[in-house]
């Protein structure tokens, strides 16, 4: 929870050493496809829990329910990637800078989606 709160507190503050554009292309290419869209999880063939992140088009569809903030203002995509238990992705930690990039992208109303 501390990490989650800390991430929210960061808001759209991208690290000064992160020069990546805050676009859907980067989110998809560097985070969603390699971390979530692996073939045995959220891929076109397995479609675990109905989510597919291994192509740009499928990710766009899958993200629809994850980019809407809940009543507490928390985006579903951020919530599953920062919760303490069964954090996604399950097989490798996600870089803090990637989480900040995602939240910034969400706060900017998902450019490129």
């Amino acid at each position: 929870m501390e990490r989650f709160a800390g991430l929210l507190a960061l808001g759209a503050c991208i690290s000064p050493t992160d020069e990546r554009p805050i676009t859907f292309d980067v989110i998809q290419l560097e985070i969603l496809a390699p971390s979530c869209g692996v073939v045995q999880c959220h891929s076109s063939t397995t479609r675990f829990q109905g989510y597919v992140f291994d192509s740009f088009d499928e990710s766009r569809r899958s993200l629809r329910n994850l980019i809407v903030p809940d009543s507490n203002g928390v985006f579903g995509l951020v919530q599953v990637m920062t919760r303490s238990s069964t954090r996604m992705p399950i097989d490798a930690p996600l870089p803090h800078d990637d989480l900040v990039l995602i939240e910034s992208w969400l706060e900017m109303d998902t450019p490129g989606l």
Binding site: T17, D18, E19, R20, P95, D97, D98
Partner: peptide
């Protein structure tokens, strides 16, 4: 190195 444009991503 996930992206050479960001220094905090090295795994």
């Amino acid at each position: 190195t996930e992206d050479t444009r960001a220094m905090g991503l090295d795994r």
